[in-house]
């Protein structure tokens, strides 16, 4: 369970990214965070693994306040959290397999890993992760030879290889076309259901949020303005969160069921 207790985050330039957040997220939930760009979605997600560090409050995971962790403890904590980015963030010149194995870095000794001496169990795990997202055949290709959707699957496989308890996804489909967006969201949903991994996903598109989320959290100006089950959400809710009428851009379009 993840608990935010009065968490605030002020950037060095004085901008307040998060204002007094109180949330609790249960294990195995599929949570989608929505809001306009600049509303603090990314800050919220990144504060969980402290890619940005909250400046006030407590962030409890499994009952421990993670904000008090030492550097060493923080690294051990991070290796149990997978993270997926809008721009995939793969090492383009390395092979797909090597990119996926990067998910095992936190579990592998420094010397072993720089000599590329990953255990066979790790290599199998990496290939299984690739199989689960359907691109095991690309294992030895260079990452930059893959399409955008395939690259995002590689980054999902990288996160899976960490064998995480939690996956954070920061706008995972913002750079993808509608059919690929649905496919990637389905992968995430499937992983969430099969492995009971908690998913916290930032999304911009309203229809994707409603279709895949268990629970939707709405942010505006760094504050939680909505929190409820996805079933209870309507377009009106989004208009309240966004503070403006819904536009064409806010929808991806429903291609998958067509």
């Amino acid at each position: 369970m993840i608990e935010f207790r009065n968490v605030s985050l002020t950037y060095p330039n004085g901008h307040q990214g998060l204002k007094n957040i109180n949330l609790s997220i249960n294990d195995g939930e599929f949570v989608v965070i929505v809001g306009l760009s600049g509303a603090g979605k990314s800050t919220l997600i990144r504060s969980i693994n402290q890619m940005v560090k909250p400046t006030a409050g407590e962030l409890l995971i499994g009952g421990e306040n993670t904000l008090k962790y030492s550097d060493r403890k923080l690294r051990q904590f991070r290796r149990n959290i997978g993270m997926i980015f809008q721009n995939y963030n793969l090492v383009k010149r390395s092979s797909v397999l090597r990119n996926v194995l990067a998910g095992r870095l936190g579990h592998t000794g420094t010397l072993r890993s720089i000599l590329s001496l990953f255990s066979q169990a790790d290599v199998r795990l990496a290939l299984e992760s690739l199989e689960r997202v359907g691109i095991a055949d690309k294992a030895y290709q260079r990452a930059d030879q893959l399409s955008g959707g395939q690259q995002q699957r590689v980054s999902i496989a990288r996160a899976l290889t960490q064998q995480p308890k939690l996956i954070l996804a920061d706008e995972p489909v913002a750079s993808l076309d509608p059919p690929t967006s649905h496919a990637v969201m389905k992968d995430l949903k499937r992983i969430n259901q099969e492995d009971n991994i908690t998913m916290i996903v930032n999304l911009h598109a309203i229809d994707l949020s409603m279709q895949y989320a268990d629970r939707i959290i709405g942010l505006r100006n760094g504050e939680v303005v909505f929190d409820g089950p996805a079933a209870s959400v309507s377009e009106k809710t989004f208009e309240d969160i966004y503070g403006r009428p819904i536009k064409e851009d806010d929808l991806v379009g429903d291609v998958s069921n067509g």
């Binding site: 690294r75 991070r78 290796r79 959290i81 993270m83 980015f85 990067a102 420094t110 890993s113």
Partner: peptide
């Protein structure tokens, strides 16, 4: 990529090498 690898819990040397 450096931030990404940091998020997986990689050490400084591992970030350099990978």
């Amino acid at each position: 990529i450096i931030h990404t690898l940091k998020a997986t819990g990689a050490s400084k040397i591992q970030i350099w090498v990978f």
